[in-house]
């Protein structure tokens, strides 16, 4: 089932101006992604973890998401140290484990998780609707916002539709297995999903026109930059400057 478990909450971070959170999360993600020194990356991971703690989210849920996203990282750890050029620190059978490979994998692991945790704290703590409105205020093209909000609105409807189709298939004795019949059934299921989506779009658009839709969504949500936002603006500017200093110290 699709859900947004992190968007509910009343922590300081949940109450920040979403526009500010989007801008900061973007700058922060790029700064971390482009950093290479270990002190900076470890500091970033600690800072992101602090953000998660301040967000007061369900730890178990956060841990589950983090574990899922780290699948690719595990794959990297299995492959990169063995295939990376560089001096070998020890041997696993015929394969040398390269020092550089281990360092690269460690760096990617730190970066990836630091960015991920900050994303959960700052971006996933908004509902998609709020995010859409915030992006609209940040001058993201109207058509993209329009696509995002309508897409989000109908994902849940289409998921319901898909479950209904799957139920009726299984009532008729459909059991998925690795055979052509299964693939054909899924393909037809997907096909009917597309056809119904197109039909529904027709009806929805007509209904929108009947209600005077003229091409833009209005939001009653007023964004305001409060004192809390100013405090966090200072905290986060210091954090980013700190990371840059750590990164720069390594270079010289």
């Amino acid at each position: 089932m699709l859900q947004e478990p992190f968007s509910k909450g009343n922590s300081q971070i949940h109450r920040l101006d979403p526009r500010f959170k989007v801008v900061f999360a973007t700058v922060y993600a790029f700064v971390v992604a482009l950093s290479n020194s270990f002190p900076a990356l470890i500091a970033a991971l600690i800072f992101s973890f602090a953000l998660i703690c301040l967000c007061r989210l369900d730890f178990l849920e956060v841990a589950k998401r983090v574990a899922l996203v780290n699948g690719f990282i595990i794959f990297l750890w299995l492959v990169v140290p063995l295939t990376y050029d560089g001096q070998s620190i020890f041997y696993l059978g015929p394969f040398g484990v390269s020092r550089e490979g281990v360092l690269v994998s460690a760096r990617i692991t730190l970066k990836s998780n630091a960015i991920l945790l900050a994303f959960i704290a700052l971006i996933a703590s908004n509902t998609v609707a709020t995010l859409g409105n915030a992006l609209g205020r940040l001058r993201v093209p109207e058509k993209i916002i329009y696509l995002l909000l309508l897409n989000y609105r109908y994902i849940f409807v289409m998921e319901e539709e898909y479950r209904r189709l799957l139920r009726s298939a299984s009532i008729r004795g459909f059991r998925p297995a690795s055979n052509l019949h299964t693939y054909k059934t899924y393909a037809y299921l997907i096909g009917i999903l597309f056809v119904r989506a197109a039909d529904r779009a027709e009806r929805v658009y007509k209904a929108m026109l009947c209600r005077g839709f003229s091409g833009s969504f209005y939001s009653l949500h007023e964004f305001s930059f409060s004192r809390l936002d100013w405090i966090w603006l200072i905290v986060m500017t210091i954090a980013i400057t700190g990371l840059e200093i750590l990164e720069w110290m390594k270079m010289t």
């Binding site: 329009y146 309508l150 597309f194 989506a197 529904r200 929805v204």
Partner: peptide, 10 residues
């Protein structure tokens, strides 16, 4: 756009 959006949801 509504067509593209709802298709993309599917």
């Amino acid at each position: 756009i509504p067509r593209a959006a709802i298709l993309s949801a599917s």
